[in-house]
Simulated scan of single mutants.
Amino acid sequence: MMDVRLSTQAAPDRITNEDGVLAIGALVAVFDGVTQPSTVDSGCSHGPAWYVRRLAARLALAYADAPEDPLPDLLAHAIGDVADEHRATCDLTRPATPASTVCMLREGRDHIDYLVLCDSTLVLDCGERTTAVTDNRIHQVIARTRPETVAGSEATVKPVTVAKWRHTNQRDGYWIAAANPQAAHHSVTGRAPLSGPDRVRRAALLTDGAAAAVDQFRLFDWAGLLDALASSGPAKLIGRIRSAEAAAVLDDARLRYKRYDDATAAICLFEDTDRRLLRPHVRRDITGP
């Protein structure tokens, strides 16, 4: 039986946590709401924190109704239900409509299923290796569109943000949970066994604020991050990230575009892992389903 430990924390410089986490039955998920520029009219009276809470709630209901359905179907159902909740009052066609990344894992009888939508990260301890699964299509879009310029009313927004919107939930761009249920069917999905030499022993679901422990601050490799989560728990991991964020100078490239970020981590343990196991780690940046 899967043992789940989780923590979600708002960035120290903001009141509202735009991340979220869900654990119900055999399903675990983490969510990272997209912060939009204050100068942008999203067309919606709700923000990313509201969207994340509603998406988690709707996903829980979809899972309760059909726990064996494919993960993309469950997520598509949830996205559609949230869209229906505010379609009459909000313009869901705006590019800045509330949105969220999603990372899901479901334990089955002899395997796990997983889904990653946009740039959250799933880390798997399988057999003799540790693998990180993410969907980096958004980063490819950003790299591809940096030279683009904007004009008019959108000029108050960073050009890369506006250029990114043009490729949101498009076949030549990237996919994210927002108002289009079809985005769920463009997720990165997979399955891993729970028995045999390549079985899953541990798995971590991370928003990018928690993955920063490896991606930005190099506090661990992915195997070391799993060890830290299993031994000390997600809250302690986030505490170490906060210390790294606070210690970095303002022009440190590791901070990307902001000093602090909301952070959410869940560790799923499938067997006794008290004895430290050292394995090579492999990062797998997935660019398409």
Rank of each mutant, 00 (worst) to 15 (best):
D3W: 07
A10M: 04
A11R: 01
T16E: 11
T16D: 11
T16F: 03
N17A: 05
N17L: 01
D19M: 05
D19L: 03
A23K: 11
A26C: 14
V28I: 15
A29H: 10
F31Q: 02
T35G: 07
T35W: 03
P37Q: 05
S38V: 12
V40L: 14
V40N: 04
C44W: 08
H46P: 02
G47L: 06
L59N: 13
A62S: 12
D65C: 09
A66L: 06
P67W: 07
P67L: 06
L75C: 07
H77K: 13
A78Q: 01
A78W: 00
G80V: 05
G80H: 05
A83G: 10
A83N: 05
H86A: 04
R87I: 05
A88L: 06
L92K: 01
R94G: 08
T97P: 00
P98N: 04
T101M: 01
C103N: 08
L105W: 09
R109F: 14
D110G: 14
D110E: 15
D113N: 12
D113S: 13
Y114C: 11
L115P: 10
L122F: 09
G127K: 08
R129Y: 15
N136Y: 08
Q140C: 13
Q140M: 12
R144N: 07
T145Y: 15
T145W: 13
R146L: 09
P147T: 07
T149C: 07
G152N: 12
V157G: 01
V162I: 12
V162W: 07
H167R: 14
T168S: 11
N169Q: 10
R171N: 15
W175Y: 13
W175L: 02
W175H: 12
A183Q: 09
H186E: 06
L194G: 05
G196D: 09
A204N: 05
A211P: 04
A211R: 04
A212T: 00
D215Q: 08
D221S: 08
D221Y: 07
L225Q: 03
L226R: 06
D227Q: 10
A228F: 05
S231E: 13
S232A: 11
S232F: 10
A235L: 05
A235E: 11
I241V: 08
S243E: 12
E245N: 00
A246I: 02
D251P: 00
R256T: 09
Y257I: 12
K258C: 01
K258Q: 07
D261C: 01
T264L: 04
A265C: 02
C268E: 04
D272V: 07
T273N: 13
R284P: 04
R284Y: 14
I286Q: 15
